[in-house]
Structures are given as C-alpha cells and as structure tokens.
C-alpha cells in the first residue's frame, strides 16, 4: 500500500490553520504523532511518501521530531508496523536541518529528487554500493546483487538485510527492491 502525506496539510490540521513553517519541537511532535496515527493499524507493508513541497522553513528541533524520531521508531527495535518512507520536496534549507538530525542517531532516508532517488544521512560505503547495485539492477535476489558487487553472497545478504531493516530497501519474497522502484510500479 502506498500513501501520500502532505506535511503542510498535516501541520495545518493538527497544529494551526495559519502555519506554514515546521518550527518548534512541540509542533514537530504533534505532526509526527499524526503521521504515526495514519500509519497505525496496517498489517501489510506500507510505503509512505512524506511530502515537504509546501513546507516553508524547517528548524533543527522540528527536523529531529518529524523525521529522525519517525525513522527511529520504524527502523530500530520492534517497529509498530512494516512501514517505509520516501521523502519528497525537500529543499536545501530542509536538508541542512535533516542531515544534522539524522547524524545524531546514525539514520538515513530515501530522498526523491527530479533526477531520481538518493540516500541522505549516515550511510557506509558498502551500504551505498549495495543500494546503488539494487537501483542499477531494478530489483534482484541476494545472489545476483552479490555477483554484481563481486561480493561474498552471505555478506551481501547481510548488507541488504541491514538496508531493509534501516527502511532503505524493501524485501519482497527473495527480491530486494528500491523504494523508488516500488513507487514507480505502483498502480
């Protein structure tokens, strides 16, 4: 299932009709809580597009609440749902705050830009190479990706499972696919 969440709409609905900036920690916490409620109750994997297009300014505290804590909840421990996220419409000003927040927790996210999808945040070289290989192959099993990387298959599988746990790839049966491909193939 694919969802689209326009953050400016959530902001206006949950905090104040007049606001267009994501600033202050309490605002960020209210917006994240609303997103979590929208995601709750789904038993199947969901891919959610978090859309910043109409968000004015994002400050560090709000980036921590809306982005970092949302990803933290779904990518560590026991997530409340099998949820994946693609972030859309982020401008450089948004990214400054978001990269600082991701760095604090060692998190990363998938960012959609006009030229395609990219990883942003804390990503190791091996992780980046594996993610790039999945993008290049358009989805494949671990053995195929390992061959493309020239890597040992069990090691490649561990790397790919790690990326899946970090919500940066999806695993559908034996196939690893990028979130961008999943969006592109959606009806």
């Amino acid at each position: 299932m694919i969802r689209h969440i326009d953050l400016s709409t959530v902001l206006r609905r949950t905090v104040c009709e007049l606001y267009s900036n994501l600033v202050t920690r309490s605002t960020g916490a209210a917006v994240r809580t609303e997103i979590e409620q929208l995601l709750a109750g789904s038993s199947e994997p969901t891919l959610t597009v978090i859309d910043f297009t109409h968000v004015g300014l994002l400050d560090y505290s709000c980036a921590d609440e809306v982005v970092a804590k949302l990803l933290l909840r779904y990518s560590t421990g026991t997530p409340p749902a099998d949820a994946y996220f693609v972030f859309r419409g982020m401008r450089d000003g948004h990214l400054d705050a978001i990269e600082a927040a991701l760095a604090r927790y060692g998190l990363a996210l998938v960012l959609e830009r006009p030229d395609g999808h990219h990883l942003v945040g804390e990503v190791g070289d091996d992780e980046q190479r594996a993610w790039d290989a999945v993008c290049r192959l358009g989805g494949a099993d671990a053995a195929t990706i390992a061959e493309s990387l020239g890597a040992d298959p069990p090691a490649a599988e561990r790397l790919l499972d790690g990326l899946t746990e970090r919500r940066l790839l999806m695993r559908l049966d034996r196939q690893y696919v990028t979130l961008g491909d999943t969006l592109g193939h959606a009806p």
């Binding site: 600033v23 202050t24 300014l57 400050d59 450089d92 000003g93 705050a97």
Partner: peptide, 13 residues
Amino acid sequence: SVRFIMTLSEVCQ
C-alpha cells in the same frame, strides 16, 4: 537567510 531564521527559531525555543 534560511539558516539565519532557523537559528533565530532555535534561540527563541
């Protein structure tokens, strides 16, 4: 300017 306003927001917070 965006970073300036972010800084202002944080200091006020």
